[in-house]
């Protein structure tokens, strides 16, 4: 027997359940730089930043199996559309508003099936390298922004990350890559710090070293000047280490 008040209660329980499951995940920072955009996070195991299409990438925070399922949905949709119509018609706006958000909302609302325990960030560069981001939450709500975006494990961590970015002109497209990486790491650390349950003010270098004991930094770019049609490139560990060495004292 379907009871409307019961449904509302169930939805509220769902939110609490999902938020609890997402807590503790490593934040993802998306930031534009002079040649495109950078996505940065940390991982303890598998990949978290994926290529979706020629100019579109995806990252997420949440349950790996759910992220995998959503990744499948969006890659399938992008490639079918790109083939049937054309690669230019595959855009972040269409993929987020018409493919991912409805799928995630439907899974969230239907209380007899499991929701997607995930918070997604899609990122795209246009022909001029201008960066657009879309965050899509587990309940299907989505928001499109230009230049800069974050997803965090809690509302507080996201607020802290946005505050860190404010007033610095983050999202300004003329940063060289290593500067963008530096800013992204600072913002990431702010978000991660709130996830640390321990007391005391920790500085970025400490937070980073602790995270790197169990995992590694994962960073990828969408770079407009790559010669291939696909503009996605995963930054190699040596490259990340090299950039990290150069900026460690500035963190």
């Amino acid at each position: 027997m379907f009871e409307p008040y019961r449904w509302i209660e169930d939805i509220a329980n769902r939110r609490e359940y999902i938020e609890e499951r997402i807590r503790g995940g490593s934040p993802v920072v998306g930031i534009s730089y002079e040649d495109g955009l950078l996505l940065l996070t940390t991982t303890r195991g598998g990949r978290k930043i994926f290529e979706v299409y020629d100019r579109i990438a995806l990252s997420a925070i949440g349950h790996p199996a759910d992220i995998e399922k959503l990744r499948e949905i969006i890659i399938d949709a992008a490639h079918l559309e790109g083939f049937m119509r054309s690669p230019e018609d595959v855009t972040l706006r269409r993929l987020s508003a018409f493919v991912l958000a409805p799928a995630m909302k439907q899974a969230f609302d239907e209380i007899f099936r499991s929701p997607y325990i995930a918070r997604i960030m899609l990122a795209e560069i246009d022909r001029d390298g201008k960066a657009t981001f879309c965050r899509i939450d587990y309940d299907g709500s989505f928001q499109i922004r230009e230049g800069f975006e974050v997803i965090g494990d809690t509302e507080e961590s996201e607020r802290a990350m946005r505050e860190e970015a404010e007033g610095k002109g983050i999202g300004n497209a003329s940063l060289p890559l290593k500067d963008a990486m530096q800013e992204a790491l600072k913002i990431w650390a702010k978000g991660k710090a709130l996830g640390c349950r321990e007391e005391g003010q920790k500085d970025i270098a400490d937070i980073l070293s602790e995270e790197l004991k169990a995992g590694r930094i994962e960073a990828s770019i969408l770079c407009k000047s790559l010669p291939t049609t696909s503009k996605f490139q995963e930054l190699k560990e040596e490259e990340i280490s090299r950039i990290l060495e150069g900026i460690r004292d500035k963190l």
């Binding site: 994926f50 890659i75 399938d76 490639h79 790109g82 083939f83 696909s230």
Partner: peptide, 10 residues
């Protein structure tokens, strides 16, 4: 062409 890209991405 699409098959090769799709395979790599998925």
């Amino acid at each position: 062409e699409h098959s090769i890209k799709y395979y790599r991405r998925s």
